[in-house]
C-alpha cells in the first residue's frame, strides 16, 4: 500500500463526464500505461435513531482494492472513529436497521477504469449519486513509498504532468495531518469520504 492522492478533476460546462474520462484515458495510455480492470468505491451513510440521544452518522465504505474489508467511519462531533471489519459487517448493519436508518438517496460511488503505469496506479472515477453524474475523481497511488511527506513533491510532479497546469494540485486535507505517518488503506477511505461529503452538499455537478 503506497501513498495515494485523490484529486477532483473539473468537467468543462459544455463537455460530458464520459468525454472527459475518455480524454484522460487517451492521455494516460499515451504515457505507456496498461489498463488493469475496473475499480469501485462506494459509500452509504446511516443516521442513528433520535431516541438514542444526539444523532450520529455512520459512513460505510467499500473499496475494490481491499475487497474483503468494510470500512466504517463514525462521525462524533470533532473526532472521527473508524473501524475496519470484514464483509460480515454489512449484515450487522442490516440487523441494526432500527437503530441506524440508511439514507438511501445519498448512496454515492466512484467507479471507472484502473491503470498501471510503472510504479503508479491511476484510477479514473466517475462519481454518481443515485445514478446522477456528479463529477470526476482521480486517484493516484505511488506504491513503493509509504511516507506522504517524502513522496508528495514527486506525486505533485506526476499529477501536474497528467492533469495539465490548469488544475491546481494541493495536498488533501486529510493527508496534511498524516504527512509523517505510515500510509494505510483507511487514509484513502478518509479522502474519499471528504470528497463524497463535498459532492453531497452541492446540487448538480461539482467543479471546484
Amino acid at each position: 500500500m503506497g501513498v495515494t492522492v485523490l484529486q477532483q478533476y473539473p468537467v468543462p460546462e459544455n463537455k460530458t463526464g464520459t468525454h472527459v474520462i475518455e480524454l484522460l484515458t487517451k492521455r494516460i495510455l499515451a504515457l505507456g500505461a496498461t489498463q488493469q480492470g475496473q475499480f469501485l468505491v462506494d459509500c452509504e451513510s446511516y443516521l442513528s435513531h433520535p431516541q438514542m440521544g444526539t444523532t450520529k452518522t455512520v459512513h460505510i465504505l467499500h473499496n475494490s482494492e481491499q475487497p474483503a474489508s468494510v470500512f466504517s467511519i463514525l462521525e462524533s462531533g470533532t473526532k472521527n472513529i473508524h473501524v475496519i471489519a470484514d464483509g460480515l459487517f454489512d449484515l450487522l448493519m442490516m440487523k441494526l436497521s432500527h437503530q441506524y436508518t440508511s439514507k438511501k438517496q445519498t448512496k454515492i460511488e466512484s467507479k471507472g477504469p484502473r491503470f498501471e503505469l510503472g510504479d503508479f496506479c491511476v484510477k479514473l472515477g466517475s462519481v454518481t449519486m443515485n445514478q446522477n453524474f456528479k463529477g470526476i475523481l482521480i486517484e493516484i497511488e505511488y506504491r513503493p513509498c509509504v511516507m506522504a511527506n517524502a513522496v508528495w513533491s514527486l506525486l505533485r510532479e506526476f499529477l501536474q504532468g497528467l492533469l495539465g497546469p490548469a488544475v491546481p494540485v494541493q495536498p488533501p486535507q486529510h493527508l496534511l495531518s498524516k504527512m509523517n505517518e505510515i500510509y494505510t488503506p483507511i487514509d484513502t477511505i478518509y479522502q474519499y469520504l471528504e470528497h463524497f461529503s463535498a459532492y453531497r452538499k452541492v446540487t448538480g455537478m461539482r467543479n471546484s
Binding site: Y142, V151, S153, L154, E157
Partner: peptide, 12 residues
C-alpha cells in the same frame, strides 16, 4: 523519493 535529480531537476 524526496530528492530530485541533480542534472534534470525533476523527480520522475
Amino acid at each position: 523519493f524526496s530528492e530530485h535529480c541533480k542534472r534534470c531537476g525533476c523527480h520522475l
